[in-house]
Write a protein that binds this DNA or RNA. Sequence first.
DNA 1: TGCAAAGCGGAACAGCGTTCCGTATCGTAT
DNA 2: ATACGATACGGAACGCTGTTCCGCTTTGCA
Lengths: 198, 198
Amino acid sequence: MTESSPPRGGSAASKRKDARRNQQTLLDAAAAVFVTSGVDAPVREIAAKAGVGLGTFYRHFPTRADLVIAVYRHQVDTCAEAGPALLANGPTPFAALERWVDHFVDFLVTKHGLAAAMQADGSGFDALHAYFIDRLVPVCTQLLDAAVAAGEIRPDLDAYHLMRGIGNLCIGTDSDPRYDARPLVVLLLAGLRRPHRT
Amino acid sequence: MTESSPPRGGSAASKRKDARRNQQTLLDAAAAVFVTSGVDAPVREIAAKAGVGLGTFYRHFPTRADLVIAVYRHQVDTCAEAGPALLANGPTPFAALERWVDHFVDFLVTKHGLAAAMQADGSGFDALHAYFIDRLVPVCTQLLDAAVAAGEIRPDLDAYHLMRGIGNLCIGTDSDPRYDARPLVVLLLAGLRRPHRT
DNA sequence: TGCAAAGCGGAACAGCGTTCCGTATCGTAT
DNA sequence: ATACGATACGGAACGCTGTTCCGCTTTGCA
């Protein structure tokens, strides 16, 4: 799982100048549109905002998921890298896990429709799901294992299910103002705690 | 029999014979298609299976949500009615809540895509979401209150959030075989438990 | 400057939910 | 039995998606 699947072969400078420029324009436009219209924004809207045609869009990002991944790759990587750091600095592994999960929820909740898109079936977003899982499950596993080793939580749950559950809980936070995923995520983690030893 | 003055009052038998027949055919076809293709099955597929045109479909069910509600109304009502019964027969309110939630999860998990459709935004499924909430939140509130009164759980969470969280956790159970929502739901409820008093 | 090769734009295709209206059927009054 | 108005039907058509395809333009090198 070293390399997932970048849109094009070499990422750096193996293309024509205008091609690279358009790709960047597209990324910027997508980032802007995602904020206002969510990640489900029509491809045409993004292409229009970038001032390019549909052909250009699809050449750079064969599937919508590739675009979303490209837009958020940096933030996902940052989130992944925060795991070990929190583990090193946190008072306890469980506290580190709590904070890391909080970061993750923050990320999901601020990206309209991202959580939903990640779990959506057959919408061509499978690659997005896979990317998140590949990148974050190992980190989550590390945090979970440490907390288990410290005797803070039960070993019942694997990282995949935890990530998946958190992601699911974050669905719809943007469309329904009265729904707040955070308390539920807290509860989920609380349910994981090992009953205090006697 | 006993229906001789149609122009008045009743909602049921005031239509033409073929209309009622087609409505039932549509319901049967939908129920069958939902099992195989999920609740997101194309309207055309359902209409074709029922052997009727699209116009007929939309006259009977102005929106897709109306169809889904009509198909599952009975089961939702059954679920709602099970609440008080479980509360009366269960050893403790929390046990009743657990069982009731289990029934609810069973229901959601066996209907492909139902959980996802319920939370889907702007897909015309809002009415579906509203129906579930209207029907089940009161029951859940009753169970929750009883458990709180019995000192079994913390009063942190309102029924809407719990229902919503459970519904969200059930999303994607059908499309991903390795994902199982049940343990997560159990964990969520476990997180609700009041720490044992001294 | 010339000229492949690489890239671009947008028309076109397929599939969706939904609307609309000419036509067929039903129920009844004659 | 027939005629006729109300009711319901079927499916073409519209608008919106994602995606593909191909004639034309731009680029970068000789």
